[in-house]
Amino acid sequence: MRYHTYLSPKKFKLMEKIRRIYVWEIPVRFYHWVNMTCIIVLVITGYFIGNPPAIQSGTEAYANYWFATNRFLHYVFAYLFFFNFLLRIYWAFAGNEFANWKQFLPVTKKQWNEIFEVLKVDILQLKTWSFESKGHNALASFTYFFMFLAFVLQCLTGFGMYAAMSTSWFPQLFAWFIPLVGGDTAARHIHHILMWVFIVFAMIHVYLVVYHDYVERTGVASSMISGWKFITGHKHHD
């Protein structure tokens, strides 16, 4: 192919060094795709709860139930979302180093350096060469950390609100949270704003995943399916 002619011998050597590594164990991958599905469903059903479309006027109430069904779906996926998240938290202690909770808290100098490196390389594109991490890069981890916090907040506000309309014991565990934020209205508002946070995150996240794949050919996109990534190992932190 045309592009191969540009490869210098040095680069060929480099390519020889490429190896496959197993980063995402099954629970992480399972978590990820269930989570994505939940969020997509929750965003759609949630959006409709906040902005019901004007349809079906002129019909009788008993003949329809779409709005309640929409809310029902929201709650079903809310439960799934929550327990799936619990699974991931468990795996943050039980899983491999890439799944470990320490990944997500930038407490070491090394992590902070990496965050700035990634900013320079990927986001601001001040440098054209790429930086390699085995697991998540430090910046990505850091954003996931905030996402996880947002997930917690979404569950607290969501189940907190749900407590008022449910007789089940489970949502009642969250009822204490509502007065803390100043009542149901405030909780709803937070809940609604977080929907947008997820939407915007998903856009950037998916883009960056594709970007990394496209630019660096690390197979990062498929890694969330297969579990394997490609690295050269020349410039990563062990």
Binding site: Y3, Q125, T128, S130, H234
Partner: peptide, 14 residues
Amino acid sequence: RKRKMIREGILNPE
């Protein structure tokens, strides 16, 4: 900016 890398499809050039 990264057209060469993309063209070459190289993993982490130095």
